[in-house]
Design a protein around this nucleic acid. Structure first.
Lengths: 307, 307
DNA sequence: AACTTACGTTCCAATAATGGAACGTTATTT
DNA sequence: AAATAACGTTCCATTATTGGAACGTAAGTT
């Protein structure tokens, strides 16, 4: 099967509307030689004469008339299709599919989404909250909020938002029971809670301010992929846990949690946005990204100052 | 303005239906390199990503989904357009616009059209009867029946049907009154009737059987472009007239008219069909031509034998 | 684990489409 | 009557498109 060149149908419709090959060529901004050739081509392809060429304008054959009707709906369909894309490109509108882990969703996005949606009433947001690592393309996600030790995914564009330093936290009661740790080795006497790691290996990578580094293995009593669950468990005194500071700022202020070994730092997580292909980014997605890039660092900074 | 290549819309719709670029390429019978390139081309032209490419099949974006709907109506329109032409090509059907002069229409076509239309029930005939010379293209005529001294029109295809010899005719009463002419010069005493000629010059070009030629000018008493009017006027004894023999056979048989100078011949008219461009001839027009070519010579011959 | 299959993309010589200029006609203007 | 303008077509060097082969990658198979 050899597929027909539908552009010829388009040209045919435009030429008939214009009344002559020359006029059609002018409207189409093409040389009339091309228009003439393509029209003849169409007739040969169809095996039928569609227009009679006279000196002054063209004259449709009966079959050309019937053929034209379908060509016109074809042109309309093409224009409608174009409008679909051009509408989405003309202004920030349409759906933005966002993905975020629970912790970030319930803190940052809870705060930022309402004002964002108020600022862009034509944008609909679909928010998928999950801690599972997702494939943006497979799940049809436009932009994902992530915290990782490093930004490595090469096929995606990443926009760093803020560093997310973490510390060990524990409930005052737990610390009273086991004694406040002075040195990392004191941690071995404690129960521990941790995020789930597919590697199955659980360690603290601690670094002191003088540069000293220490890696400590532990067996977690509780493993989950929800940081908020970890925080609540820690508040209940179930064990020590490594968490981003911004998540614990409130709990520390209210006395529910206490920093453990505050002079030893955990690896800094980098909070960032990722999205596919910088090219062809829809305005709706672009303004979402811009909005988050503009506001998340401020919010994160505020949390850190408090924490 | 650069016009979009609508074939890309078509390819897009087919690829989505097939589920992958490779499968779409197979269905379209195109190399996948081309399909891949054209799809990317379409996305760049629209400035928007329409499909996400994954290893196993494609995934439409939301906008791609909306875009696709219009592409599908576009494909339907293209198929409908094709059907219009292919239907007309598949069998003799549709309209045939025929043009003929009065004389031929009322003799030959009156006899041949009914059986033709019975033989091809899907064909509709539109018959324009006029003696005025017509431009086939301008008037949208598919095929014209003509009688001319020569076949000269170069832009048309001509199919000769039969020679149409002519003679001078007169009513017996008129001949009794003025005396039966023995020699062309005797014609000068008669009143004459004639077809209308735009040249304004009226002559008889007589040739004897021994090759002798004679051109005789005359002033017609009656000029019309309808041969049947001339014949009736001649029957009424209004004057002599040069007419095709087949037209007068009946009148001669019934004694209403008589041949004048039967040994002197008028220029032979050639009855023929003309139609534009042998290429792209519709089956309906083709079978009409074939039918006339098959039957008119027989009918004409019969008339001549009688006459 | 190694192998096979199937996907989408890229490369580049072979091929096809393009478009400015010239042509032959015809209607209109000078 | 001559000149001009406009039409559709054709020509052919330039330009753009094509498609087979090779590539990198991921899923299924031995």
């Amino acid at each position: 099967m050899s597929l027909p060149d539908l552009t010829n149908y388009f040209i045919f419709a435009r030429v008939v509307a214009a009344g002559s090959i020359s006029a059609g060529a002018r409207e189409l901004n093409m040389p009339k030689s091309t228009v003439s050739r393509r029209l003849t081509e169409l007739e040969e392809e169809q095996g039928i004469r569609l227009v009679h060429r006279t000196r002054k304008g063209l004259k449709l054959t009966d079959i050309g008339q019937a053929f034209l009707i379908h060509c016109e709906t074809l042109v309309s369909a093409a224009e409608a299709a174009q409008q679909v894309t051009q509408l989405m490109l003309a202004a920030p509108r349409g759906k933005v599919h966002v993905s975020a882990p629970y912790a970030l969703s319930q803190s940052l996005l809870t705060e930022l989404l309402p004002p964002f949606m108020k600022a862009y009433p034509e944008i609909n947001v679909e928010l998928t909250v999950t801690n599972r690592p997702i494939n943006l393309v497979d799940e049809g996600v436009d932009v994902a909020l992530r915290v990782r030790a490093s930004i490595e995914d090469s096929s995606l564009i990443a926009r760093p938002l803020a560093d997310s330093p973490g510390t060990l936290y524990g409930a005052p009661a737990l610390l009273a029971e086991h004694g406040v740790p002075k040195h990392p080795l004191d941690l071995l006497h404690f129960p521990h809670l941790s995020l789930h790691y597919t590697s199955g290996r659980y360690t603290y990578q601690l670094s002191a301010e003088d540069g000293e580094q220490l890696t400590l293995s532990f067996n977690p009593r509780l493993v989950t992929d929800d940081m908020l669950v970890l925080r609540e468990a820690a508040v209940q005194g179930e064990g020590l846990v490594a968490l981003p500071n911004y998540l614990c700022a409130d709990a520390v202020a209210s006395g529910q949690l206490q920093r453990v070994l505050p002079n030893w730092h955990l690896p800094v997580g980098i909070m960032h946005l990722v999205y596919p292909h910088r090219r062809g980014l829809l305005p709706a997605v672009r303004v979402f990204i811009d909005y988050m890039v503009a506001h998340i660092p401020v919010l994160a900074q505020r949390s850190l100052l408090i924490g």
